[in-house]
Computed example of a mutant assay.
Amino acid sequence: MDTAALFSLEGRCALVTGGSRGIGRMIAEGLLRQGARVYISARKAEACDETAKELSEIGPCVSLPADVSTMDGIHSLVAAYGEHEKTLDILVNNAGAAWGAAFDEFPESGWDKAVDLNMKAPFFLAQAFKPMLLEARAAGPLAKIINIASVDGLSLNPQETYFYHASKAGLVHLTKRMAVRLAPDGIVVSAIAPGAFASNMNKVARDHGDEIKDRIPSRRIGEPEDMAGAAIYLASRAGDYVVGSTLVVDGGVNIAR
């Protein structure tokens, strides 16, 4: 058994939404270091361009700014990607949003915007990119869709993040439904449920890591290598038989809760 080839992504193309920062950037860097060509998308063009420039020092990385919370944004991203590639091996649905407010004050606008991004966008991105994923599968290894859920989709945190809990739980179940439908076509769908990783979205982990680490069984917050390793596993040959499952990467938080 060639274990190096088991985790290799040489010659494969990947698209990571929300790839300009945080978990998306960690994943994009990991895929690059395993040999993939990586395209990153984010709503803020300047940040997306800057990250792609920095990651290009590792391997080929291209910025494709887009707002995937809307159907127009999804179609624009597909068109922009199609100007560079005809096939897509790996789609990482990472773009997401968090919002917290008291039960009696929670706004509809926040609910709609965030649920569209966290749960609706992964489905319609997969639908729109399906022809390219099938083309990739016809020419080589299994195609992959990796949805980035959250440990908060599996158990409750103390904050009143109603839509976040609901949308991430929905994404976990959506992953199962998509996986069963697409596996016979050679497209493997799985998910990752991160715990505490330092990011602009998870400001508690970013700014107060030393304070919260004692509540994590592993006694630390997640590091870039933890997230990159999980994504590489699922994206590579090593993860081909992981169908519809959600890989929990949280240092033990979910079971400790």
Score class of each variant (00 low, 15 high):
P122W: 08
A128Y: 07
M119A: 13
L125F: 11
L77E: 03
I74D: 01
A139P: 07
G59M: 10
I58Q: 08
N93V: 09
T70E: 13
G82V: 09
A126G: 15
D104F: 12
V62W: 03
E108S: 11
D116K: 13
P122F: 07
A97N: 09
G59C: 12
A128E: 13
A138D: 14
I90N: 03
E85T: 12
V68G: 01
G110N: 06
E135F: 04
N118F: 10
L117I: 15
E135M: 11
A80G: 04
M71Q: 08
T70S: 15
V78H: 04
H75Y: 10
E108G: 05
E85C: 02
L64Q: 03
R137F: 13
H75F: 15
A79V: 03
F124T: 09
L125P: 01
D104A: 15
D104C: 10
T87Q: 13
S56I: 13
A79Y: 10
R137Y: 15
S76I: 00
K113L: 11
S109P: 03
A128L: 09
G140R: 09
S63D: 08
A102F: 15
T87H: 04
D104I: 14
H84S: 11
L117K: 02
M132K: 06
A114V: 13
E135K: 14
A95K: 00
K120V: 09
Y81I: 05
S76H: 15
N93G: 03
